[in-house]
């Protein structure tokens, strides 16, 4: 299965501050990492996505629409995912958060059981799609071992391949991304598991200009698995300056408060 919608949001939609690079650090991976991290930060954003799964026989599933609200800073990232349609996912929620050094916490709850959220695996696909919560956080950008692997090209745009490896052995052993240096945007992200198998390839297929500044954001993303099935994610709406209210993440904060 191909899994993941989340990465795109984060990778692509938060690319707000792509311009903040110093010119002299452009060529060096350290400057790049900072820029990519920077680009992910946001006081609040919302994107609405339509996810279509295409299996290895090229059969397309009906689209699942979800909304993702997010907030990210160096200290903390949190996301709220809301199912829009079809009926089966409507008003089903997923809330997830991660502190700088902490683990990812994720909970799911339906429209009627707000009191009984269940904890979910951040490596699982969301609403049975290929959208993986873990990818949303871009954890690999914090990993200690980052090496530049030379120039590449994704959908006609030049980018720099960067290999990221964690300090300790994790479920994911390696992430290789191709980063557009001008916009600090990963155009392609390959995720390898502990057996060194390629789990998924996340590719930005279409870019559009952002409303708020000169940056670019992803309009269309595909997440392909190694067997040829893939998910197509179309960003059809959103708000780059979403107003996060205190209640927006209320359920999440109550859950985390309880579990601590």
């Amino acid at each position: 299965m191909n899994r993941q919608v989340a990465p795109l949001l984060v990778i692509a939609l938060l690319a707000g501050c792509g311009q903040s690079w110093a010119t002299d650090s452009r060529e060096t991976p350290p400057g790049l990492l900072e820029a990519v991290q920077q680009a992910r930060y946001s006081d609040g954003f919302e994107v609405r996505l339509a996810i279509t799964t295409v299996d290895a026989q090229k059969v397309r599933s009906p689209p699942i629409k979800i909304a993702v609200i997010g907030q990210a800073s160096a200290e903390r990232q949190r996301f709220l995912v809301r199912g829009i349609s079809p009926e089966a996912v409507r008003n089903h929620y997923l809330v997830t958060a991660k502190n700088a050094a902490g683990p990812i916490n994720a909970f799911e709850y339906g429209p009627d059981d707000e009191g009984h959220p269940i904890s979910v695996d951040p490596f699982a696909g969301l609403f049975k799609t290929d959208f993986v919560i873990w990818d949303l956080f871009g954890t690999w950008w914090d990993w200690p071992r980052q090496t530049a692997e030379g120039l590449g090209e994704v959908n006609g745009r030049r980018c720099l391949w960067v290999r990221s490896r964690p300090a300790a052995l994790l479920q994911i052993k390696e992430v290789v991304s191709c980063v557009d240096k001008e916009f600090a945007l990963a155009l392609s992200t390959k995720v390898y598991d502990s057996q060194n198998r390629l789990r998924r390839t996340i590719r930005v297929e279409k870019l559009i200009r952002k409303n708020s500044n000169a940056g670019l954001m992803a309009k269309k993303i595909t997440i392909a698995d190694e067997r040829g099935a893939y998910s197509e994610i179309d960003v059809y709406g959103g708000d780059e300056q979403y107003q996060v209210e205190s209640e927006t993440f209320g359920v999440l904060e109550r859950l985390l408060g309880k579990s601590n």
Partner: peptide
């Protein structure tokens, strides 16, 4: 909003 490049300018309060 100024700088809106798209058909539907970005939302504001």
């Amino acid at each position: 909003r100024t700088g809106s490049q798209n058909a539907m300018p970005s939302p504001f309060v």
